[in-house]
Nucleic acid binder design. Sequence first.
RNA 1: GCCGAGGUAGCUCAGUUGGUAGAGCACGCGACUGAAAAUUGCGGUGUCCCCAGUUCAAGUCUGGGCCUCGGCA
Length: 307
Amino acid sequence: MAPDTPHPVLLAIVGPTAAGKTALSLDLAEALRGEIVSADSRQIYRGMDIGSAKATSAEQARVPHHLLDLVDPDQVLTLAEYQQLAYRAIDDIHARGRLPLLVGGSGQYVAAVLEGWRIPEVAPQPELRKRLAADAAAHGAEALHARLAALDPAAAARIDYRNVRRVIRALEVCLVTGRPISELQAKEPPPYRILRIGVTRPRPVLYERIDRRVDAMIEAGLVDEVRRLADAGYGWDLPAMTGLGYRQMGLYLRGAATLDEAIALVKQATRRFVRQQYNWFPLSDPAIHWLDPEQVTVAEVLDWVDE
RNA sequence: GCCGAGGUAGCUCAGUUGGUAGAGCACGCGACUGAAAAUUGCGGUGUCCCCAGUUCAAGUCUGGGCCUCGGCA
């Protein structure tokens, strides 16, 4: 047989919010004839542009973007659906002879794509979830967790009983399929040569950038954007409306906080989010080529990508 | 200036009859397989304003000082 054709390359740009992933990925995509596949759980919503720091129309004109504006804020796009769409977009970009860049800060989305999570094929069952949640409220989280332990000890051992949301999902899969969720979960790495670039900054610098970015979002009209969504009838409990910026502006619009308080809350929540993101993208991960945009030039990054 | 209240963790504060401190938030570290910017676990934080005194022992009692807030002038 002929030597294997090398797997096509997938460039992944990961890292915490406000570190500069967008700027770097635009430069790289232009230089490498690439197209951007967003891995951002907030930029999938139409009408949520400022708060989600979505690429502007000017930026989207520079480089083709995929997986933005997929659904309205009252619609749900599940992880499994996102994963499928991402693979489709990546394969399509490859087929056209271009380079896909997976860019985003939603750790779970990135992991699902790069690690090839095989996600149990059980769509959310709203009424079952409601029943289980009521159960937990009535008899306690431990009782619900005990139910899971009876059906799937391995899964129960991995999930804290107080994390009711994840206990419910695990139970949901076990009850619907009749099989333990822990047996249905697997990883099948996708057939790409994956290069991971992590964009990072010293923590204090990052926090400073967050503060400035939130201020810029306010100036760009975040309050109006959120008001428009609320006026359109999107409820504050929707997943889309609980995102950073939207939730806190909601407090302001409902009179539960002053604008200054709401702004401070956005900044604080974003810092917390950054810490959570580093759990998905550890600085110690040898698979990630970390860089600080202040320390390297795009040309140097390109050299590295070329190997 | 007088009267009152107060100074304890980055912030807001709790601290029993004296036995060298603790909550929330912040902050730090983790988990994560169809809600994930969600949900969730763990963990420090420290001249207890300063000086002197009483005491085996002072955040706690006494005296003095400094500062903050409120009221009255």
